[in-house]
């Protein structure tokens, strides 16, 4: 990320992408709440952020290349530890997943709002008013 726009937006576009991905994973958990042997998954957001900060990602060889955001969430996908075991080995706990989905949706919206703030500031700067 090198352009002026990317610098102004900071971490928020990446954060929105990761939270959207997280929502998708959790929606998959909720869809499989009655599937035998299904194991609930979630994305470890902390780990994703660490990877963004470190050099573990694939190097971008040209400044015009756009890094693939889905690479970020690949290693951070983890199985959730269920609070109580179930007879069919399904580890989806609907209330936990619904709370996590709400959390991800809220964080996604926050990222969008912060990006909007940065964009409108830039617009003001360009217009000069």
């Amino acid at each position: 990320m090198s352009s002026q726009l990317d610098q102004a937006l900071g971490v928020f576009p990446t954060s929105a992408i990761v939270q959207a991905k997280r929502m998708e994973v959790i929606a998959g958990n909720l869809a499989n709440s009655s599937t035998p042997n299904y194991r609930a998954k979630d994305i470890d957001f902390k780990q994703v952020l660490q990877e963004v900060g470190s050099s573990q990602r694939l190097a971008v060889t040209n400044s015009a290349h756009i890094p693939n955001p889905s690479d970020l969430t690949q290693t951070a996908l983890k199985f959730r530890n269920p609070l109580s075991p179930s007879r069919d080995n399904n580890t989806v706990e609907t209330h936990v997943e619904e709370a996590a989905y709400g959390d991800a949706a809220g964080r996604y919206l926050a990222s969008i709002r912060f990006s909007e703030g940065a964009l409108s500031d830039m617009r003001k700067a360009y217009r000069g008013d």
């Binding site: 929606a27 998959g28 958990n29 869809a31 009655s34 998954k41 889905s70 690949q74």
Partner: peptide, 10 residues
């Protein structure tokens, strides 16, 4: 086909 299968449907 994706590197990380994006969703797990039912």
């Amino acid at each position: 086909q994706a590197a990380m299968p994006s969703g797990y449907g039912v």
